[in-house]
């Protein structure tokens, strides 16, 4: 009796160890293969597009019928709309984040604001697009414009900015706030001069996230900004059509008549991925360097 119990236990333990090992291998294989797949696909995009890229392509006008056109105005519009939307959404989004982290009392109003932030973050971008369309094309009556696209895009940015700012501010330790208040600073001075600088890393990462998302957004732009541009470079007019590079990629791939449409699409996709990578890196790079420096400074003290 006793031996069989010991036996069965040993069996159970052996099988537990065996399944555990299987599980490790299984999870490892899934992770590695998924990563290889995704990186392989991104590499394909960059590999197909980048070698054919030339400066000309980035700055010349598109051509509707003949091969050899560029994406100049679309690329320009992409940045123009992105920057406008950030200018519009940064103060409001960060303000809302500060309110939620620093001022919000624990009551129903705060609950309401939090629910709106989360709901707004989950609103499908096409719904934002339709909203922009109703607002700017039907009620204001200015048609498909850069400013319409930028304002609608700003709405998409707002909830993410608010949430990221709130999280970054909440991570700031309480004692530096108290130190600032004890020196006689008002709450607003404390927030602006002590808390925000301390939370800057988190906020910057959030901004890069928002910028990437806004840069690649296409559904909103199609509905509020249109699929084409004014047709010449460096057009800062807020009321000209606001087609951006992602929209152009879609247009070229689905409707264009140009013979070299595939090549244009490949190159545009490569540019998009490259710019998103650059945006992410430029924001994170200083943070990495900073982390590295503090690490190097910290090591000799330890040893």
């Amino acid at each position: 009796m006793r031996e069989s119990l010991f036996h069965s236990h040993r069996k159970a333990i052996a099988s537990a160890i065996y399944t555990n090992r299987l599980f490790h291998i299984f999870v490892g294989i899934i992770t590695v293969s998924t990563f290889i797949l995704i990186i392989g696909l991104l590499y394909t995009i960059l590999g197909k597009g980048l070698p054919k890229l030339s400066l000309d392509f980035l700055f010349t006008l598109p051509n509707e019928l003949e091969a050899g056109g560029g994406v100049g105005p679309f690329l320009f519009n992409s940045f123009y709309v992105l920057i406008l939307s950030l200018i519009l959404s940064l103060p409001i989004g960060i303000g809302a984040g500060i309110f939620l982290a620093e001022y919000a009392p624990n009551n129903r109003f705060t609950e309401f604001v939090r629910t709106s932030v989360e709901s707004l973050a989950s609103v499908p971008s096409i719904v934002f697009g339709l909203f922009g369309y109703v607002l700017f094309v039907e009620y204001v009556g200015i048609g498909l414009t850069i400013i319409g696209a930028a304002v609608t895009l700003a709405l998409l940015n707002l909830p993410v900015l608010a949430r990221v700012t709130e999280e970054a501010i909440q991570a700031v330790p309480q004692d530096i706030r108290e130190a600032s208040l004890a020196l006689g600073a008002t709450k607003s001075q404390t927030i602006l001069k002590v808390v925000l600088p301390a939370a800057l890393n988190g906020i910057l990462t959030g901004i890069s996230l928002v910028a990437c998302r806004a840069f690649g957004e296409s559904a909103i732009i199609i509905l509020a900004g249109g699929t084409s541009t004014s047709g010449f470079m460096w057009d800062f007019n807020l009321l000209s059509q606001g087609g951006t590079l992602p929209v152009h990629l879609w247009y070229v791939q689905s409707e264009a008549l140009v013979p070299d449409a595939t090549e244009i699409a490949q190159k545009s996709a490569a540019i998009l991925v490259l710019i998103v990578l650059i945006i992410s890196f430029t924001v994170r790079f200083p943070l990495w360097i900073q982390a590295l420096i503090t690490k190097i400074k910290a090591t000799p003290r330890k040893s």
Partner: peptide, 9 residues
């Protein structure tokens, strides 16, 4: 980084 890749891509 992958979260930021445009959906159109």
């Amino acid at each position: 980084l992958l979260v930021g890749i445009p959906s159109i891509v």
